[in-house]
């Protein structure tokens, strides 16, 4: 490599490294603002901006969904398997909404500790499988337990099928 090219290579590397570290520092500083949602445990611990709109993320607690038969009002508990936060919502829920499903509720926490959502989004997990496989897993008597990592769960199911 000629000296000129070596110099250009150094400049190019410095450019990429410099931009990379500057961005890394900025992102670390902004970390709290970039997270999309906060969990029930953080709400319970009071680790959230008060009097502001926020997004609450977690699983819909099993058996907690109750619908008002005469309107669109629905209430449920959002859990992270440690703490639960009650949520009320008046509107149309996404297709994927069901008990045990990950959801993100956008709204405000009231003084009485109830989260009033004006929007509820379903959060899809990264698992894709055919219905037969899901049924087989259910038959094997091992529904995905709250908080259990999927890898461990799948290992258990495979062990039982063997």
């Amino acid at each position: 490599m000629t000296p000129t090219r070596k110099k250009r290579l150094a400049v190019v590397s410095l450019l990429v490294l410099g931009v990379g570290s500057a961005t890394a520092i900025a992102l670390v500083a902004l970390n709290d603002n970039i997270r999309f949602s906060i969990g029930p445990s953080e709400i319970i611990a009071g680790d959230f901006p008060e009097g502001r709109q926020l997004r609450l993320g977690g699983l819909v607690a099993a058996g907690s969904v109750s619908r008002d038969p005469s309107s669109l009002a629905v209430s449920f508990q959002v859990t992270d398997c440690i703490h639960e936060v009650p949520v009320t919502f008046n509107g149309i829920l996404p297709d994927l909404f069901r008990e045990g499903q990950g959801v993100i509720a956008h709204g405000m926490l009231n003084a009485d500790g109830v989260f009033h959502a004006h929007e509820v989004l379903a959060r899809h997990d990264e698992t894709y499988m055919p219905p037969e496989v899901e049924r087989a897993m259910a038959l094997a008597g091992s529904g995905l337990v709250c908080g259990e990592p999927l890898e461990d769960h799948l290992a258990t199911v495979r062990g039982q099928n063997r």
Binding site: N31, I34, R35, F36, S37, I38, G57, I104, L121, R123, H124, D125, E126, T127, Y128, M129, P130, V133, L150, E151, L154
Partner: peptide
């Protein structure tokens, strides 16, 4: 960060969370 978008399904190292038939 916590995102609305789901995490990685396909992994080059380790098992993917997508059934092999798909």
């Amino acid at each position: 960060w916590t995102t609305l978008h789901q995490g990685k399904t396909i992994r080059i190292f380790g098992e993917s969370s997508m059934h092999y038939s798909m």
